[in-house]
Design a protein around this nucleic acid. Structure first.
Lengths: 191, 191
DNA sequence: GCAAAATGAGTGAATACTCATTCATGGGAG
DNA sequence: CTCCCATGAATGAGTATTCACTCATTTTGC
């Protein structure tokens, strides 16, 4: 087996187990077993379990940002760009529910708390795109005149809650509902 | 010391530690030390650490429901009742940030996941009040015609996100902002 | 003086991580 | 083509630590 495969086998096993049982319900030995390697092998690829956990987060985020940025219609009107963003994010997580649940768990743990500030203040990545939308929206008097962090909560807070309910099976978001709900997110921030 | 005090000392210590360090960052020994009792004493009041954790959640929820239901203007118009609910919830958690962070952590863990379904489908408690509002709102064509679970996400998802940001210090919600943002929550679900 | 409450050292189970050893692979010599 | 060997990947039993929980003993308060 190529070493790259081993590495991603380990990550996949960790993702599965952690999503299902939480960080402390996923001992290294079990991750190893699920990945089909010995426990020691994990330490050839990750210096510690903590590192594995943060690395998993980092790579997932990278992938998500890439997907959402791809074919982002940067020349289209504000509303359209905004709807594009949240629709693609919804679609991504609906297709990759484990990724969503992992990210949620990560942010809601000692690991993720320090990251939150960076996100809101706009690190490189899709957050910049979003902050641009908010900024222009306020300038053009299309959006409510509220701090950007609040616009973020008003729109993405809903979205995340929706995704969770869909992924946990409490609701089913079909195409029609996705359209309606993403527009409702827009309604929350439009003037 | 009266035994009731001991019990609540233990709960308070657990709350503080768990909020700060997470469930597995709060060993029984440390909770005991912070509460000013010996480790063994905890087991006179709670059969296990797990029980302490779920009990803490249960009592916090009880308290929150009581506060929000108190002086709920059940005879006033829909919009007013809705705004009352979310404003009071915001106020409660702003006053008791540790309670918010504990609840968040709890729901986002193996403990809380089973509870979520009950909430959305309307257990006794403030959720019933909320579901009534949604039901009537749809009947009276005041609210968007969407599943109640979705209306919940659209309004309370934002709210929770807002609270988190305020409590973690990323934004400051003063009275004016509370008014604006709770109204924005309404905008997300109104027709 | 006794019952209830509190104690905290002790126990066993779980877990992250180590490291001496084994195994697999590919390429070069014959 | 075959054999051999070097290199680095993989192994998994072992270690040190941590933690929830127990219980024989002490303290408290009535």
């Amino acid at each position: 087996m190529k070493t790259e495969d081993t590495r991603s086998d380990i990550m996949q096993a960790a993702l599965d187990l952690i999503v299902e049982q939480g960080f402390h319900g996923a001992p290294v030995a079990e991750i190893a077993e699920k990945a089909g390697v010995a426990a020691g092998t994990i330490y050839r690829y990750f210096v510690s379990k903590d590192f594995l956990i943060t690395e998993l987060h980092r790579e997932l985020e990278e992938k998500i940002v890439a997907v959402v940025q791809e074919s982002y219609p940067s020349e289209r009107p504000l509303r359209e760009r905004f709807l594009y963003l949240i629709r693609e994010l919804l679609r991504y997580f609906i297709t990759n529910p484990l990724h969503f649940r992992y990210m949620e768990q990560y942010y809601n743990s000692p690991y993720g708390i320090s990251l939150h500030r960076d996100r809101l203040l706009g690190k490189p990545g899709n957050q910049d795109i979003l902050m641009d939308i908010f900024e222009q929206g306020i300038d053009q008097q299309v959006l409510k005149e509220l701090p950007k962090a609040i616009l973020f909560s008003l729109s993405f807070g809903s979205l995340i809650s929706l995704m969770r309910d869909h992924i946990l099976g409490f609701i089913v978001l079909d195409e029609a509902l996705i359209k309606q709900t993403t527009e409702a997110c827009w309604d929350a921030i439009k003037r």
